[in-house]
């Protein structure tokens, strides 16, 4: 089993949508997948999965108020494998609470996260995908340290690439973690043109392997929160690229 954190230096790079679609694609390919929302300050998976019934959130588990089994929600919409999601609490009170946690709480959260991932390993899960907040925030760092690899999502512009550089140098290299790069929202007319842009980004970023280059597709914005691309529009080029990633990610891990 591999645990993979999905991270970026700046916000809005497309981590959460990617995490959800990739989790769904992997489960459709018959893998047993866990998707963990570790962005306690801006929980998103709850909305991407259309506000499901959730008894306990990851917040409760990290607070010591719920057991690991109680926070796992099984998503049953036609996937061949298994898709288990652990949601972060989207209520404003929970977000406020997460904002004022201290270092001692974060230390314990790391320990609990490591424990949770261990449990999934024991339950023969194939892959755990962790959605994280951007930049070197506590929950992101905890997820990265607890994982085996990171997917670094970046836009192809100069500021984003600089940010990615900083993460590679100041964070990922310290934990000696495997880094796979996704260049997202590439403005281009063709995938070939996008690939060229993506490759120029990788050349600037030593120490990361290019996993995929994803063009900017307006439909991804238009349907966000309404439709899940890989489930509802499997023939869309975005979905096809996500399936491509789901098939080839194993050779990188």
């Amino acid at each position: 089993m591999k645990a993979v954190a999905i991270h970026s230096q700046r916000g809005g790079s497309g981590k959460s949508v990617l995490a959800a679609n990739l989790a769904y694609a992997l489960a459709s390919l018959n893998y047993k997948v866990v998707l963990l929302d570790c962005d306690l300050r801006a929980p998103t998976q709850y909305y991407i999965f259309n506000e499901p019934k959730v008894k306990h959130f990851i917040n409760d588990y990290l607070n010591g108020e719920a057991e690991d089994d109680d926070v796992i929600v099984r998503i049953d919409d036609g996937v061949k494998g298994k898709l288990l999601v652990v949601f972060a609490n989207p209520s404003i009170d929970a977000i406020k609470e997460a904002l004022v946690k201290d270092r001692r709480w974060e230390m314990n959260a790391l320990k609990k996260l490591i424990g949770l991932i261990k449990k999934f390993r024991h339950d023969s899960v194939d892959i755990v995908l962790i959605d994280t907040p951007p930049g070197p925030q506590y929950s992101a760092l905890n997820a990265i340290v607890a994982s085996d690899a990171t997917i670094l999502v970046t836009l192809p512009d100069k500021i984003e690439v600089r940010g990615a550089e900083v993460l590679l140098r100041e964070i990922y290299s310290l934990v000696e973690i495997k880094v796979m790069l996704i260049v997202n929202k590439v403005p281009s007319k063709s995938h070939e043109e996008a690939l060229r842009l993506g490759e120029s980004v990788v050349r600037k970023l030593g120490g990361a392997e290019l996993l995929e280059v994803i063009p900017y597709y307006p439909e991804v914005v238009l349907y966000n929160g309404d439709k899940m691309m890989v489930r509802d529009l499997p023939e869309h080029p975005y979905s096809k690229l996500i399936f491509e990633i789901a098939r080839k990610i194993w050779t990188y891990l």
């Binding site: 974060e106 320990k111 340290v145």
Partner: peptide, 26 residues
């Protein structure tokens, strides 16, 4: 407090060992 920030700031040669110990459950 030994949190993730501490883990990241221990001297280079010891970091891998301390992180491994943390991942093994402490």
């Amino acid at each position: 407090i030994i949190d993730v920030v501490t883990l990241l700031s221990v001297p280079d040669h010891l970091r891998k060992t301390l992180i491994a110990l943390a991942k093994l459950g402490g």
